[in-house]
């Protein structure tokens, strides 16, 4: 029964090796989806390309559905996995800072790594910038961020429970909203690109 490593059913070396292979899969499909193209990534905010939205939501929904089934049928225990604890204030503010980073820099960390190693100089600069940012954050942690980072603590919060509905209903609602969004953005994209040529 999963997860295997947290229950010490596989050794640390095997775990790290598996991590490497899972990374290969992740990197392969990020690149294949076109996430190394910064113009495609920024397109989601300007309406000329919605690949980010499509890939992002279909990945999250696929994982949510499968993890639900695995957990429900006792194949793996989600409570033993990495479950991001909710600290809503720093997450919201951090998310907003990342929004600036995304629009100005044109990447997020995962995509910038993929793009950097496939030869995009701007992505290499972005990764460098991210490392500088983490350095800056680390050295100013005590002075600036410490209290903010730990504010708004809510513990492990499941959003379906928080909204007072069942997990299955939440996944269904999320998927229906996403499916509607997928159709809507296809139409938006057609309209936006009809008026003007966007080089990708």
């Amino acid at each position: 029964m999963g997860p295997l490593f947290p229950q010490e059913l596989i050794s640390e070396e095997i775990n790290i090796l598996i991590g490497f292979f899972i990374g290969i899969g992740f990197g392969f499909f990020l690149e294949a989806a076109g996430f190394t193209n910064t113009k495609k990534l920024a397109g989601v905010f300007y309406g000329y390309d919605f690949v980010v939205l499509k890939v992002f939501f279909s990945a999250a929904i696929t994982a949510a559905i499968l993890l639900f089934f695995l957990n429900h049928f006792g194949i793996m225990d989600i409570s033993l996995t990495f479950y991001p604890k909710t600290f809503w204030i720093p997450t919201l503010i951090g998310g907003f800072i990342m929004a600036f980073g995304f629009i100005i820099g044109g990447f997020c960390p995962g995509t910038s790594i993929c793009a950097a190693v496939t030869g995009k100089i701007d992505a290499m600069v972005f990764v460098l910038g991210a490392i500088i940012g983490i350095f800056a954050y680390a050295f100013s942690f005590d002075a600036l961020w410490k209290d903010l980072r730990n504010s708004g603590a809510m513990g492990n919060v499941n959003i379906a429970e928080w909204m007072g509905i069942s997990d299955g209903l939440f996944i269904l609602l999320l998927t229906v909203v996403a499916a509607v969004a997928f159709f809507a953005v296809t139409i938006i994209q057609k309209k936006v690109t009809a008026n003007r040529d966007y080089e990708l």
């Binding site: 951090g94 800072i97 100005i104």
Partner: peptide, 17 residues
């Protein structure tokens, strides 16, 4: 822009966990 964006993303990702 990429450098500034990267730095902001670096800070934001640490703050936002």
């Amino acid at each position: 822009a990429a450098l500034i964006g990267g730095a902001l993303f670096g800070i934001g990702s640490q703050l936002g966990r």
